[in-house]
Design a protein around this nucleic acid. Structure first.
Lengths: 244, 244
DNA sequence: CGACGCTTTGACACAACTCAACAACCGTGG
DNA sequence: CCACGGTTGTTGAGTTGTGTCAAAGCGTCG
């Protein structure tokens, strides 16, 4: 069933609305302009005008926001199949930065092209709206995590959500995945200090819930973690919408 | 310039793309089905299927998420001109609840109708995508507030952002506005305890930065607050996008 | 080998939470 | 009219989660 052109993006959007051949063609075309970024390079800089959106093909990204005092809040870690900077295009300027956490391959699309496509292919426009909505929902969940969960619960939740997202694109098994995250960046994602992340990881390890080392996460006790985190599945792409 | 039909919604979307007469007509039509909710009533229930979106005409709403342990995280307080539940329509089911913080008047639009309109009027679809993006950007800012600001900084930021939003729809002056918020709900918005909000409010009062009582906020020292919060203006609707 | 990035640990400080009590302000009903 | 419960705001005392600072361990790589 999979062909070279059946991209992660197409699979993702197709889970929202069934797409026509034309629309599939556009999606293939959209992703023709491949660019590589080295680990650490910036794809998007906070405060700058947004010229293009990216569709991540391989590797990990990191969306974050810097504060005047030097603090950093990680908003999201884009993984293959995710859009980067789509929101920024609409808002004209980027409210956050995005950098490559590993070497990454992206497809770049100029802003005017994106707008033109949304105009000509409203169903694709709706699919992008859906995708942006999904991302927004995850940010909301992240907000809940930081606002109303302890650091330990939040970390458990973070790992569970990441596992599920990675599983959707075939980058995680039920119980483990590889990642480029260090304790410092996890701290900035959870809004706690690096030292505290270390302590929490030790606790989770000692309670045989999960291990995180050498770029690998092993989930030792899934139901225990879910209970700790109060986790509910993402429930993506259950059934398609009846879109005229 | 303003007519009866030049709604807050139309004004808001028009700041993204210049709209045709047809499109304006659709927006008027969209908002014909007015419904009133009493204070405390639920507009949207977390976990339920989303049948309709609402455009808030008057009053305050409250978007929030409940946790299994009874905790509550407020995501956003919709004010007149805001969309409620647009994201939920796309995602089929609501990931959060929304209740009326005061008596409210909304315009209700059935989900299929929204989808139909996005299909027929791609420019309106893009405008809605823009609106959802804006909301998402505010949630991100909220995330930063909770994750990387102290409770005091966060509260200052919260008040400043609210003031700016209210000013856009004529519900706040430079230095004050009325509101239906109590300390408990502010606590759930900032992710801290009710008691702590009280103490922080006292500090802000004692430092002559702001007062909040009897449903009224008075900003006593704008630049002092901005400095404390590390606040940057929302920068909405600077100039319109060149949308073909 | 030394330098560097990342992790781990300890000691201490502080922000924020919990529990508890009380005050002020309603609207309601006897 | 006052007594009453309910809601919201205020304050204090003690506890706990998390932050800060500092030091050391341990890989990797030039």
């Amino acid at each position: 069933m999979d062909t070279e052109f059946d991209s992660a993006l197409a699979r993702k959007l197709n889970s929202f609305v069934e797409m026509s051949k034309d629309e599939r063609g556009i999606l293939v075309d959209l992703q023709s302009n491949r660019i590589t970024f080295k680990r650490g390079q910036a794809l998007i800089e906070q405060g700058q005008a947004a010229h293009e959106a990216f569709f991540l093909q391989s590797g990990w990204g990191c969306n974050f926001k810097m504060l005047p005092d030097g603090g950093r809040q990680v908003i999201r870690f884009p993984i293959p199949g995710d859009c980067i900077g789509l929101r920024s295009i609409l808002l004209r300027t980027s409210d956050h930065s995005c950098s490559a956490l590993t070497d990454v391959v992206v497809a770049a699309v100029e802003a005017p092209r994106m707008l033109e496509i949304m105009n000509k292919y409203p169903r694709l426009g709706a699919a992008f709206l859906w995708s942006v909505s999904q991302d927004a929902a995850m940010v909301v969940e992240h907000l809940v995590s930081i606002g109303r969960r302890s650091a330990k619960e939040g970390l458990a939740h973070f790992i569970l959500e990441l596992t599920e997202r990675l599983k959707l694109v075939g980058l995680a098994t039920e119980a483990q995945f590889e990642h480029p995250l260090n304790q410092s960046i996890i701290a900035d994602a959870l809004g706690v200090s690096e030292v505290h992340v270390n302590r929490i990881l030790r606790e989770l390890r000692e309670q045989n819930l999960l291990t995180l080392r050498e770029g690998k996460v092993n989930i030792l006790d899934l139901s225990g973690l879910q209970k700790l985190a109060g986790y509910r599945s993402l429930q993506i792409g259950r059934d398609k919408i009846d879109y005229a």
